[in-house]
Computed example of a mutant assay.
Amino acid sequence: MTKRLQGRHALVTGSTSNIGRAIAEAFAAEGAFVVVSGRDQDRGEATVAAIREQGGRAVFAPADLDGTPEASRALAATAAALAGGRIDVLVNNAGIFPPTTTATTDAATFDRVYAVNVKAPYFLTQAVVPGMLAAGGGAVVNLGSWVARLGIASSALYASTKGAVETLTRAWAAEFGPQGVRVNAVSPGVIRPPSLDPGAPQAGAALMQGTPAGAAGHPSAIAAAAVYLASDEAVFVHGTVLDVDGGRTGVAVTAA
């Protein structure tokens, strides 16, 4: 059976834990050579080791994506060199979610969240996509969030950055799609850490009450969606934000 990402070279940011790690592992299982990236060297090497133990191919590229063009360009260059000169799939996953409200957000926090969540993927896409265009095609998968479209009281700053990412997804699809680079996004719902016992109390679980799923999801669900969007199965998919949120944004379950 042909693996869906066989022969592809992928860069996954923020892939040393949780959703990012699940995406990196799923890509490798589907045949991709994966450049795992993040700030933590130990977690990065552990992710690479886990992929290799399963027969996959991966390397680690440390990076602190602080929103500067220089940091994004440096990672793009390093990743391409480690991957034999090209990146076919870029997953913009890295992001931060500080516990802050509008009333308690200072300017430094505001700038930091926008730098990591919006500027970093913007400049990384700017650095990586030209290589894809030169090679004749590629795919970009962004990570949005359900809170970009369903307002909750405690995440205005974070939600606004994910709204920006989802808007960039559509704009980039229009800009790059005609030249062979597909751009789409996955919008996760409440996701539990993969190591957490399914029966244990889950942070944010109350936010999934009244949904078809009724509970937080596993990172593997997001990874499966990212594999699909990166693969040729999604060849006719451009500018889509794929909700993988247990029905949180689209469905209200009420008692009969």
Score class of each variant (00 low, 15 high):
2 T>K: 14
2 T>I: 03
5 L>S: 08
5 L>A: 06
6 Q>S: 14
10 A>I: 12
13 T>H: 09
13 T>I: 03
14 G>N: 08
17 S>Y: 00
19 I>P: 06
20 G>R: 07
22 A>E: 06
26 A>H: 07
26 A>E: 12
26 A>F: 07
27 F>S: 09
28 A>N: 01
30 E>W: 02
32 A>C: 08
34 V>D: 05
37 S>E: 03
39 R>W: 03
39 R>D: 05
39 R>V: 04
42 D>R: 15
44 G>A: 08
47 T>A: 11
49 A>Y: 08
49 A>T: 11
50 A>F: 10
50 A>R: 14
56 G>E: 04
57 R>G: 09
58 A>W: 01
58 A>P: 12
60 F>D: 01
61 A>Y: 02
63 A>Y: 00
65 L>A: 00
65 L>Y: 10
65 L>T: 04
66 D>Q: 04
68 T>D: 02
69 P>T: 00
74 A>E: 15
75 L>I: 07
76 A>T: 09
76 A>K: 01
77 A>W: 10
79 A>P: 13
80 A>G: 08
81 A>P: 11
82 L>I: 00
82 L>R: 15
85 G>H: 06
96 I>R: 14
98 P>A: 02
101 T>P: 12
102 T>E: 10
102 T>D: 14
102 T>L: 15
103 A>T: 15
105 T>C: 12
107 A>E: 13
109 T>Y: 00
111 D>V: 02
111 D>T: 04
111 D>K: 14
113 V>P: 14
113 V>C: 06
114 Y>I: 09
115 A>D: 05
119 K>Y: 12
119 K>F: 02
121 P>R: 00
122 Y>P: 06
122 Y>S: 10
123 F>A: 09
132 M>K: 10
134 A>S: 14
140 V>W: 06
142 N>Q: 03
145 S>H: 06
145 S>N: 09
146 W>G: 08
146 W>Q: 15
148 A>K: 00
149 R>I: 13
152 I>V: 13
152 I>P: 05
153 A>N: 04
154 S>V: 01
159 A>Y: 07
161 T>W: 04
162 K>Y: 06
163 G>D: 07
164 A>I: 03
164 A>F: 00
166 E>T: 01
171 A>V: 08
172 W>T: 04
175 E>A: 14
176 F>W: 15
182 R>V: 05
183 V>I: 04
185 A>W: 01
186 V>I: 10
187 S>T: 02
187 S>I: 07
188 P>M: 00
188 P>G: 05
189 G>S: 12
191 I>V: 09
191 I>L: 09
192 R>Q: 14
192 R>S: 15
193 P>C: 09
195 S>Q: 14
196 L>Q: 12
197 D>F: 10
197 D>E: 08
198 P>G: 00
198 P>L: 06
200 A>N: 13
200 A>F: 10
201 P>M: 09
202 Q>Y: 02
205 A>Q: 15
206 A>Y: 13
213 A>F: 09
213 A>M: 11
213 A>G: 08
215 A>R: 15
215 A>P: 05
217 G>A: 03
220 S>I: 02
220 S>F: 00
223 A>F: 03
223 A>T: 05
225 A>H: 05
226 A>C: 11
228 Y>W: 06
228 Y>E: 02
230 A>E: 05
230 A>S: 14
231 S>V: 07
232 D>Y: 03
233 E>H: 12
234 A>K: 10
238 H>V: 14
241 V>W: 00
242 L>S: 04
242 L>N: 01
246 G>L: 06
249 T>G: 05
252 A>Q: 14
253 V>H: 04
254 T>N: 14
256 A>E: 13
